[in-house]
Design a protein around this nucleic acid. Sequence first.
DNA 1: AACATCCTTACGGTAATCCACAAAGCATAA
DNA 2: TTATGCTTTGTGGATTACCGTAAGGATGTT
Lengths: 221, 221
Amino acid sequence: MFKKVLIVDDHDDINSGVLNVLKANNIVNIVYSQYCDDAHLKFKRAIFDQEPFDLLITDLSFKKDHRECKILSGEALIDVLRTEAPELPIIVYSMNSLFQKVRTLITKHRVNAYVCKDRKGSLELSQAIKAVYNKIQFLSPQVKNALSSKLDLEINDYDVELVKQLSNGLSQAEISAYLEQNNMSPSSLSSVEKRLNKLKDQFKANNAIHLVAIVKDLGLI
Amino acid sequence: MFKKVLIVDDHDDINSGVLNVLKANNIVNIVYSQYCDDAHLKFKRAIFDQEPFDLLITDLSFKKDHRECKILSGEALIDVLRTEAPELPIIVYSMNSLFQKVRTLITKHRVNAYVCKDRKGSLELSQAIKAVYNKIQFLSPQVKNALSSKLDLEINDYDVELVKQLSNGLSQAEISAYLEQNNMSPSSLSSVEKRLNKLKDQFKANNAIHLVAIVKDLGLI
DNA sequence: AACATCCTTACGGTAATCCACAAAGCATAA
DNA sequence: TTATGCTTTGTGGATTACCGTAAGGATGTT
């Protein structure tokens, strides 16, 4: 079983819950951190001391408080650690259950498991630890289909960018200008309109507001 | 100290965290539930058995799953239990930190403590238990100001309804009609516009789309 | 080269919204 | 009652979004 585990989560009682799960799996060398920056330091220090961690369990979202942090999210932390330890087993343990997020974490960041904090969170976390130890990927049932779902494969990065900018408060004209500045094509106002219309059809949205609400609920942005 | 405590929270490892806090306070008779309906049954049963609970610790939001539930939120559960046990000490333990929500819970439902699940959640929960046992109200620092008067800037149920209907794809005219049909006042198109403008100011939103995106991110709708 | 097809862009009329201001309703106090 | 402030409602003009149509371009096929 894993020898030394780093837990990163800003909720202290989630930490104690995860702790119990690890102890139940006979893992005793456990370090935890409530801040990503702190976790990064501990991780590097462990390598320096030649006692590196062999598993990372991290949340995705961290509330801001008085402390200044460079690494603001679990995803950013994973990004950093992946460059320093490409083969480190990583388990994401998060409330978030957005397919798009799960997919990028699995494919881009190559995390080894994604567990949803939920009614059976502890149980699934325990399963995930065992699975990952045996080099098997683990996904909670809620997000099992994140990699196979075709529903949102029809929508591409350009579309996502459009809706994201919409949700950031840009007008269609501003989006057109933004696209032009970033050398994205097509960029004309007319094209933006046309593409948004297509998306509104696709998602059965009454208007742009409705579209953003739907796409946000689906977790595409 | 309290003798018998009912914990209601759908996250199983939050439960184990709360459990640890209670044990540290020498409370051993602990029952927990992941569903509000279930909690309600256990509560009534305990009274029937003449071994009633003397403390309730509950979350506010519960994810839906396959089980059919009548009581869908912690607030609804509190509402029910307050009618059956007007003097029951109640501690809310939630991620939610909206002043409006805190205020209605304190004033309308007379909950005895509001603890934010956060970096110091366990510590504060422990403090809350001690305080409530000594008949003292407890609020986490993040929401300590929820009861002070200066925050008429806060968002109320009417505002939430407006933005929710917006996100459902209704036009402002349709929202006006909807409000009139449901006897909500004010209902005129002009009033809808005005209120939305106020909200856009409040949330620093560029337009209605931006507003909906922000409010969705904050979890208000 | 000629043609079809697809994609991008442009334009114009209609509808929705944004915004400032004015009128009406309603309560409280002099 | 009248005056006063506050909220709600109404109005009109500017802006933006919506939607159909059509012109221009690129690509591929024959």
